[in-house]
Design a protein around this nucleic acid. Structure first.
Lengths: 349, 349
DNA sequence: CTGAAAGCGCTTACAG
DNA sequence: CTGAAAGCGCTTACAG
């Protein structure tokens, strides 16, 4: 049988109360007794039962982490940040990935039934998270979203769900500034998705910044997702084919860069002399392209870390109040970093 | 407050015993009563407390998963297989990655304290797992290892730890067969690592197979890890530079292929006409090389799946016996799949 | 400084 | 078919 606190108490000739206090409440027990008890516990190979502790104190020291765990390195690094922060604080992550066979709601119930102290999630496009998460909030369990926001049916972000992600708007702004500094005045953006997608903010940051400078033009080309996946260079050809083509283009995702490079090549344009390009995300491809792509790097590990820290703070806050407290959601946006490579130069004379 | 079984009992005008049985022991309670109770529970938003259940029944329906979660796709796919199998069976994975700040032993204690029903791990080179895992076995918790085996201090694999991985020896055998079929008789292997590394078995499978055929030679070149990481083509140059160079070479890792390709190019050798090459692992690089690299593909998702299934079986088995049962470890090796590309052809005349 | 007792939210023999 | 009571392994007021 497993050794319990009672076994330790008998062997050490004290009460279970004393053993319990010796382990959990420093200062309540005479140092001599305490050391003896601890030594006996150690010798017997005693290990506390956190289930019981969790049940009594209402804190299991575990949190649910809802992600895809698909093995892409971006998400892997988010999880690393989350994991290290949690483990350092004595918590443990229960890792679940919602999918067809195990939808988000059942996963969340599974976590709630195990009395996790909080839930951290990276929402994916399709899932209807919002209603499920209210289930958690209602039960006094805080939720934090990382990388992409949870958006409710109303199209608005959820009020009680904190968020940590990349400052996409700032990223667009940085891209615009770099283009302007290089001397470009005739620009374009290739973007896609709707307001809820990060590409939208990147595009907006770029466009808004250009608006503040006189004699600057910017054409916004909205790519469909099919376009992106097909990698067909058609749209890029149209954009680049005319006489009044831009001298610099901002891609709100690195992934579309290969298509644009191909389009430029087939039109006889030299990169970066005839066309400067800036991407976003710093994917592996950015490094391999010729010329290598200047882009903006996100910080997944830090996103995970800050997300977990925020969650731990909320757990603390929830613990202190009996009911689910009312609070303003915290939004933390991390600055993307400019990665200078070879795809930006002065515009052609 | 959270609604408990007692609240449900009061509202439904029955005892807690009846509520408990209505939920957990079908058949013990009259169908009419049962339905009424279940309905009340549902209306009140009752959710069972699995901590209590776990404490009483000695099964928490959770298992510890020890991996790197570094975001590489191979490991990601292993975890997917593990996750789906566990979730389908009602279990939940607690995902921990041992590292400097949180060493394996403390992670394992963390899992044991939370009374996981089993532990599944993908061991990494450095960690001293074996002694820690005895801690688990001693406490009646089964352990399964996937992808690479746990090796004890004696250098032998642990007896009580089941293993699911790739049949590396068979992979080497397949590579040899393909080379022989293409007509090669003068061969070489580039390998590295010691007996505990999978590359060793791949190499052995290749060499052993060639031995069964007359008039066949095979030079084994043992690369150091520094060599592999530096990607310096020196050793490959030496191998390929002589008159009696092999006409076909088996690489026990795809990762070293780029270096070999470069060495061949600098010696003016045409691939695959002057030299046939076979890799192992089917990494992304295998697809991008010119000529694309024929290789052997592993099945990480299936490895994870079978590993989890095996663990669930062991949990069942452990549950039935009071003490940790004595048993022969199960070893399940999955066949790698031959991926035919363009790097193998007949030897030069 | 230490201990007896109640209680956390369930399950499970054992009665009725 | 249903319920009162004991018990799982701890923690925490409350006494002494």
């Amino acid at each position: 049988m497993r050794v319990t606190i009672k076994d330790v108490a008998e062997k050490a000739q004290v009460s279970v109360t004393t053993v319990s206090m010796a382990m959990g409440s420093p200062g309540r027990i005479a140092e001599a007794t305490r050391e003896r008890v601890l030594k006996v516990a150690e010798e017997m190979g005693y290990r506390p039962n956190m289930l019981v502790r969790g049940m009594q104190k209402g804190q299991t020291m575990s949190v649910g982490v809802l992600m895809n765990f698909s093995g892409d390195s971006f998400e892997g690094r988010i999880f690393q940040g989350v994991h290290h922060t949690l483990v350092d604080a004595g918590y443990v992550p229960i890792a679940l990935m919602p999918n067809d066979r195990a939808p988000a709601l059942s996963q969340i119930h599974s976590l709630l039934d195990r009395r996790v102290d909080g839930i951290l999630m990276r929402p994916t496009g399709e899932a209807k998270w919002e209603e499920h998460l209210h289930e958690a909030l209602r039960r006094h369990v805080p939720v934090v979203s990382v990388d992409s926001e949870t958006v409710g049916e109303s199209g608005k972000s959820e009020r009680q769900i904190d968020f940590v992600g990349t400052d996409d708007y700032l990223g667009g702004k940085i891209a615009a500034t770099k283009m302007l500094e290089a001397g470009h005045r005739r620009l374009a953006v290739l973007s896609m998705g709707d307001e809820t997608d990060p590409m939208y903010q990147r595009c907006k940051g770029f466009v808004d910044t250009l608006k503040t400078v006189a004699d600057t033009t910017c054409e916004v080309v909205d790519l469909s997702w099919e376009y992106v996946h097909s990698e067909s260079p058609e749209l890029a050809m149209k954009l680049l084919g005319s006489e009044s083509r831009p001298t610099g283009v901002f891609l709100t995702m690195d992934m579309i860069a290969p298509g644009v490079y191909r389009a430029a090549a087939s039109l006889g344009l030299n990169l970066p002399d005839d066309l400067s390009v800036i991407g976003f995300a710093d994917e592996a491809v950015a490094h391999y392209l010729t010329p290598s792509l200047s882009t903006l790097r996100q910080h997944p590990r830090e996103i995970g870390q800050h997300g977990a820290e925020l969650l731990l703070k909320r757990i603390e806050m929830f613990r202190k109040s009996k009911k689910t407290p009312v609070f303003e959601r915290t939004i933390k946006l991390l600055e993307p970093t400019w990665v200078e490579r070879d795809s930006v130069t002065a515009p052609p004379a």
